[in-house]
Amino acid sequence: MPDAVLEAIDIDVRFGGLQALSSAGVTADAGTITGLIGPNGAGKTTLFNVITGHQHANAGDVRLLGRSVAKYGVHRRAQLGLSRTFQKLEAFNSLSARDNVLVAAEMHSGVRAAARQSDEILERVGLAEVADITVGTLPTGTARLVELARALAARPRALLLDEASSGLTEEETAAVGSLLKQLVDEDGLAVLLVEHDMSFVMNTCSHIHVLDFGQIIAVGSADEIQNDPAVRSAYLGTGS
């Protein structure tokens, strides 16, 4: 039985009259990659924001390593091991790639240790060559990798990736995929990702949650999800 590193339980979010999430929940286990998919506007990013504390939930609980963090602020959750990337890029644009990573590493390590860790992570993510370049001038795909590197430098136990592959070339996507598998296998990280590139999801994720109209409509393996009629109709419309 795998340990749940991250659990979001029965999350409700209302924006005015709009019910963005109703009793939505996800679980991410140590050493696994979990996918969260669903049509546009289903509430995926909202759920992410609730988990990291950027969005207030009307009801529900978020548990990290078995401990409720729903009352904590964003930075506190981050210190406890929750890290993320953003759908709309939120890199530190006026800093270099290295400094982006350093800011995160320095939150828990001394000067030398942080510098060493940063260089290792940049190498691992494949950013060593652009380390000194201002992130604001990098292509979107590369800036996304900087966000990933920065998230890793924060030493997460659970890593949330929002559209990790958008803007990336096919090779870059593949590289991110194998990097994630490596992280999960070797470091026991729990990864939860929102993704539109379905071949990426189907190939990387061992569990997939499908969100539609703010509700989880299916949970299962790639095969189960692909053959689930509810999922098909959610994606392709009412006709099929």
């Binding site: 950027h54 210190q79 993320r84 530190f92 006026s94 939150m107 998230a151 924060a154």
Partner: peptide, 16 residues
């Protein structure tokens, strides 16, 4: 500088 660029992101790496 990081905080100026993105407060939301700074918080997610643990910056108070």
């Amino acid at each position: 500088v990081a905080m100026q660029d993105s407060q939301a992101a700074a918080a997610t790496v643990g910056v108070n």
